[in-house]
């Protein structure tokens, strides 16, 4: 990443313009041109620096629900259980962590009432109990990293 990439990445973590030519507006603010901004973003996406570009929705305000879940997976079964869990479209992301509870994943569903059912299916398919940690209160929103 060069200086322009860093500028772009730091600037575009929020507040993308709602305008007919949004990339042209961003380019003007950064002293470059529309085609350069588009090309840089396309390259960052190809390189895997960006996972997503666009609106980030609040599932709860859309009537949906998100929850964090944890499992204690026997090390010998880790790959197998990962494949089962990741196959659920409701699983938004999944991390292996260093702890007795070594698998942590986030479920996102359209209707809060679906959560127990999805957890039940994961428990049945893996044969392992799932701990559910719904958020009770959020103290911060934004994931902002400096490039």
């Amino acid at each position: 990443m060069d200086a322009l990439d860093r500028l772009l990445v730091n600037r575009l973590q929020g507040g993308f313009p709602l305008a007919e030519r949004p990339f042209a507006e961003v380019a003007r603010a950064l002293g470059t041109d529309e085609a350069t901004v588009i090309r840089r973003l396309a390259r960052l996406r190809e390189e895997g620096v960006l996972t997503r570009f666009g609106p980030l929705f609040d599932a709860e305000r859309m009537g949906g629900a998100v929850t964090l879940c944890a499992m204690e997976v026997p090390p010998a079964r880790f790959e197998e259980v990962t494949a089962i869990v990741n196959a659920f479209p409701e699983v938004a992301h999944n991390y292996e962590r260093e702890h007795r509870f070594n698998m942590w994943f986030v479920l996102a569903v359209a209707d809060p009432a679906e959560i127990p059912g999805v957890i039940g299916r994961i428990e049945r398919e893996t044969g392992l109990p799932v701990l559910n940690f719904p958020k009770e209160r959020e103290y911060f929103l934004e994931l902002r990293l400096d490039a």
């Binding site: 575009l12 973590q13 929020g14 993308f16 973003l41 960006l50 980030l56 929705f57 609040d58 929103l141």
Partner: peptide, 9 residues
């Protein structure tokens, strides 16, 4: 409903 609009790294 949209909490932020931009890129996710």
């Amino acid at each position: 409903v949209i909490r932020r609009f931009g890129l996710v790294l």
